[in-house]
Design a protein around this nucleic acid. Structure first.
Lengths: 129, 129
DNA sequence: CTTGATGTATTATTTAAACTAATACACTTA
DNA sequence: TAAGTGTATTAGTTTAAATAATACATCAAG
């Protein structure tokens, strides 16, 4: 379900965050589905529970999961995810990315066709579920 | 010209890289223009020269600047910037970003109109120079 | 040819962040 | 009640970032 890469120079909790986001975004984990507990995942990955805790806390702040003491952690419903702060961050990231793409000489048409292709590929993938 | 943020949790050399990229991408620094020397910038920012050196080395690898021993560091000509490796990285970043934007419910049209807006804004800005 | 500036490299040290470890507590469910 | 959950705290270790002090090769100017 989750594989860590120790050659990766990024912190473990970042890797966990990214992998978990992917699982949620790609629909592998469904809304309100329970995800492994802090201790379970720590044991599975043979790392410290505190590291999982940090990853989960970040994911909760970003709106991807919610946690209930005594019960566990769960995939957040979409409504919770769509918060303006996150949207602003994503837009800012998009601006940076496009700025660099323009700089290396990509035309608007090239960029948009990339967006189009990516969008289509993702839609196809989601329809398979 | 360059302002560091010590509340930022990212490493200083990352901040320097990002700021320098912005200056180049936004056309503030022109092709073949000389940028501050390692020692100059270190003194200006009151940080260690080795930190600047690391930032500059990274920027050179990514194709944004080139350095000549004994002379200084300069903004790279565009042709050098367009390398396939960098393009692949940018495309991968774009894929991740769009995936998350789709997840939070943005339609293809919304994303493309964002791209369109960003592109136009940047073109206007560049024409002012 | 000397001088001062440049990029580059190396080694050692300090500082900060990431990670581990061991507990503790409040809450939920069976 | 017992076992599992999230959460918090404190301490220690490990790793990365940043500093510090040099050294060397190159280039331009005097």
């Amino acid at each position: 379900m989750l594989q860590l890469d120790y050659r990766d120079r990024r912190p473990l909790y970042e890797q966990i965050k990214e992998k978990m986001k992917e699982l949620i975004i790609n629909g592998i984990l469904k809304q309100d589905e329970r995800i492994p507990s802090v201790r379970e995942l720590a044991q599975l990955l043979t790392i410290n529970p505190n590291t999982i805790q940090k990853a989960y806390k970040d994911l909760e702040v970003e709106g991807f999961i919610y946690s209930i003491r005594g019960r566990g952690s769960f995939v957040a419903p979409l409504n919770d995810v769509i918060n303006q702060t996150r949207l602003n961050e994503l837009t800012k990231d998009l601006e940076k990315l496009i700025a660099e793409m323009m700089y290396v000489g990509l035309t608007k048409e090239q960029i948009i066709s990339s967006v189009d292709r990516i969008y289509k590929e993702r839609q196809d993938k989601m329809e398979d579920d």
